[in-house]
Design a protein around this nucleic acid. Structure first.
Lengths: 115, 115
DNA sequence: GTAACTACTTACCTTTTAGTAATTGGTTAC
DNA sequence: GTAACCAATTACTAAAAGGTAAGTAGTTAC
C-alpha cells in the first residue's frame, strides 16, 4: 500500500485544478477576463466586437463570470441604455493564471512556427 | 478609430490564450500533466486509477498530449507488457500554468467554504 | 411611424466531449 | 485450456458546448 499522505496531497492537487477549470471553463471565459483585466471596463457590444463572441454566448459567459464574482455589471443611464462590464478585485487573483497562459501560448506558437 | 497597435496586442493576447487552451483543453489534460510532472513516470493502469479516468478517455488524452510533445510513451519489456508515461521537458514549461491553477483552485475553495 | 441604436433572448441545430460496457490481443501461471 | 493481467480499442449513448439567425424591448432621431 502506498503512502496515504501523498495520496491526499495528490487528491488536493487534482481537485484544485478541477475547481479552477470548473470556474473558467470553455473557450471564452479566460479571453473575456484577459480583456477586462488588461483593458478595463467594456460595454457589451464592445466586448462582443473585441472578442468576436456572438451575443448569445457572450451573455451566457458574462452571466457565469458574474455568478462567480469575477465580473461586475453596471447599467448606465445613457440614451440608449448601455451596460458596462468590469473585472472585479477577485478577478485580479486570476491574473497569475491568465498571464502564465498568455506567456505559454506565445512561446508555444514560436516553438511550432520554428519547427 | 482606435489605436491599432493596442488592437494587435489585444489580438496576440487573445490568440495566445486560445492556443494554450487548444493544447490543454478538456477536463483531464492538466490533471494528467500535474500527476506526471509532480509524481514522475506512471503506467497506464496506475494513471487511470490515480486520476479516476476511464481507459478510453485516458488513452485519447494521452495520445493528444503525446502529439503535442508534452508526454512520452515507453513500452517496457515486462511480463505482461507495461507502458510507462512520463512528462517531457517541454511539459516543464507548463508548470507555471499548472501551479498557478492549483494555487487558485485551493484559494477559491477556501473562499467558497468561508462564505 | 419608421429606422436606428443598445443589450440582450429565443429557437434551432451541429459538433464536441465524456462516459459506460464490452471486446481485443498478447502473455503467463496453473 | 482457462483464468488472469495489462494496455488499450470499439461501439454506443447522453450531455454539454457552441454557433447562426431572428426576434424582443426600450429609447431616440428624423
Amino acid at each position: 500500500m502506498k503512502n496515504k499522505s501523498s495520496d491526499i496531497a495528490c487528491d488536493n492537487v487534482h481537485s484544485a485544478i478541477q475547481d479552477t477549470l470548473y470556474v473558467v471553463n470553455g473557450k471564452w471565459k479566460l479571453v473575456i477576463l484577459s480583456i477586462l483585466v488588461n483593458n478595463g471596463t467594456k460595454r457589451f457590444g464592445e466586448l462582443s466586437r473585441a472578442s468576436g463572441i456572438s451575443p448569445r454566448i457572450l451573455s451566457k459567459e458574462l452571466h457565469e463570470l458574474e455568478i462567480n464574482q469575477l465580473v461586475s455589471r453596471k447599467v448606465c443611464d445613457t440614451k440608449p441604455i448601455t451596460v458596462e462590464y468590469s473585472s472585479t478585485e477577485y478577478a485580479e487573483t486570476l491574473k497569475e493564471v491568465i498571464d502564465a497562459m498568455i506567456r505559454w501560448g506565445q512561446n508555444h506558437r514560436r516553438k511550432i512556427i520554428g519547427q
